[in-house]
Amino acid sequence: MSHGPSFPPLMQGINAAGADPFEAACEAASNDCDAGSILYDITPDRLRAAIVLAPEVPLAKAAAMLPLTAVAVQNALGALGPAELPVHLEWSGPIRVNGARCGAVKAAASGADLTQPPAWMVTGFTLTFARPQAEGGATPDETDLMSEGCGGLSPTQFLESWSRHLLNWINRWEDDGMAPLHREFAGLAYGLGEDIEVLGRSGHFLGLDEDLGLLLRSGGQTTVIPVTDLLETRT
């Protein structure tokens, strides 16, 4: 008899059984499911997962759960993948392994009022473990974990590790504020110090503000793109 993934206390797994875990989590959250519910869909080629959260801080601060989710993905890959495997995080969501896209994170919240805690928030990620052989050379900006030396890593093993890293970072964020997460994400940010395009805008990626908003220099002016611009709003 096969068993599902094991998660830390206060987290519980729900097999999405082929459905999109992110959409299923948003629906479950809107129907008052428990915070800490992790919905997942595991295949040999791809892992998709999402978690229902119940932030107690205004949405402007709770938006940090999106980069926090990405940091947990990177940390899990760093713990389980080959030594020195380069894993970086695009500010807008994509996960970069050895410079190429290998997955992405995203988030949704129950409302758009930045001054109020959302009734719920969902963050989730997709990670590619393998691709059809023919895709290798045709998509040089995309990769998969098997191609990057992670052939022995199972999606279930990764999901369990990610949940532990996620819980650790949530606890650190609650206890120590944004500073540790800011340092971690800044050290992993893809394209930092370079010219980039993000959300239809171009400029020089200067760094991150105190809430992990992207500082973009263009035309002699510096603007902040807040993390909340990345959130999907659900009703």
Results as ranks from 00 to 15, higher is better:
86 P>L: 00
125 F>A: 00
122 V>P: 08
154 S>C: 06
159 L>Q: 03
109 A>H: 11
108 A>N: 06
147 S>Q: 09
108 A>S: 15
92 S>H: 15
132 P>F: 03
139 T>G: 00
149 G>S: 10
113 D>W: 09
103 G>A: 05
110 S>W: 02
129 F>R: 01
102 C>G: 07
131 R>W: 02
127 L>W: 01
138 A>D: 08
141 D>I: 01
95 I>G: 03
110 S>P: 04
124 G>F: 11
130 A>E: 08
122 V>Q: 07
89 L>K: 08
102 C>T: 03
114 L>T: 09
93 G>D: 10
139 T>K: 14
150 C>Y: 03
105 V>G: 14
94 P>C: 11
122 V>I: 06
112 A>H: 14
158 F>S: 10
147 S>C: 01
129 F>A: 03
125 F>N: 02
94 P>R: 07
103 G>V: 05
153 L>I: 04
85 L>M: 05
111 G>V: 07
112 A>E: 15
136 G>Y: 12
143 T>Y: 01
142 E>P: 00
107 A>F: 05
112 A>Q: 12
148 E>P: 06
132 P>Y: 04
123 T>I: 04
146 M>C: 10
142 E>C: 03
125 F>M: 07
144 D>K: 08
101 R>T: 07
113 D>Y: 10
121 M>H: 04
112 A>D: 15
139 T>R: 12
105 V>W: 12
109 A>E: 13
95 I>K: 01
149 G>N: 06
86 P>S: 02
98 N>C: 14
124 G>S: 12
110 S>G: 10
152 G>L: 07
94 P>N: 11
104 A>M: 11
117 P>Q: 10
98 N>A: 15
87 V>F: 02
143 T>V: 00
88 H>T: 11
142 E>D: 00
116 Q>Y: 13
108 A>R: 05
123 T>M: 06
151 G>K: 08
96 R>Y: 06
96 R>S: 08
126 T>Q: 11
111 G>M: 09
101 R>Y: 02
97 V>E: 00
127 L>D: 00
157 Q>R: 12
108 A>Y: 09
137 G>N: 06
101 R>W: 01
118 P>H: 13
141 D>S: 04
152 G>K: 07
156 T>D: 13
139 T>Q: 08
149 G>D: 06
94 P>A: 14
157 Q>A: 09
132 P>W: 02
101 R>M: 09
133 Q>C: 06
98 N>S: 15
150 C>S: 13
158 F>R: 12
153 L>D: 04
96 R>Q: 13
101 R>E: 04
120 W>K: 14
127 L>Q: 01
160 E>A: 10
114 L>A: 14
103 G>L: 04
99 G>V: 00
158 F>Y: 09
125 F>P: 00
113 D>F: 09
86 P>K: 02
100 A>R: 12
138 A>F: 08
110 S>A: 14
157 Q>Y: 01
100 A>V: 02
100 A>L: 05
